[in-house]
């Protein structure tokens, strides 16, 4: 039973991974990363519940808090990027690559 929870969270993590790598919409990328963190949380909470300790829950609170901290920066990122480019397309932000290519 415990393993099922673990496998579920691994699957969820992989889904998040696929989304974060393959999509070009910055908000969807952000949400995929959140999904990955949630998968980790599931793992921790199930450990806590099956082993009857509270450490897992505490760690999972940490993960949630870290996710929240990242969220704040991501919001700032959305705003700055949308202001500059009027789009959420990550592939538009490639002037750094260009300087390399034109050389």
């Amino acid at each position: 039973m415990f393993k099922n929870y673990l496998i579920l969270s691994i699957l969820l993590f992989s889904l998040g991974l696929i989304g974060a790598v393959s999509r070009r919409n910055i908000i969807i990328i952000y949400m995929s990363i959140e999904l990955m963190l949630n998968a980790v949380s599931i793992m921790l909470v199930s450990y806590s519940s099956f082993y009857n300790t509270n450490t897992g829950v505490v760690l999972s609170i940490m993960v949630t808090a870290i996710a929240a901290a990242e969220a704040a920066l991501f919001m700032a990122l959305f705003v700055t990027l949308y202001r500059k480019k009027k789009s959420l397309d990550t592939s538009l932000f490639n002037s750094l690559k260009d300087t390399n290519a034109t050389k």
Partner: peptide, 12 residues
């Protein structure tokens, strides 16, 4: 723009 992009890449 370069700086904002670097921020974007690094954060993501």
């Amino acid at each position: 723009l370069k700086s904002s992009e670097a921020f974007f890449k690094y954060l993501v």
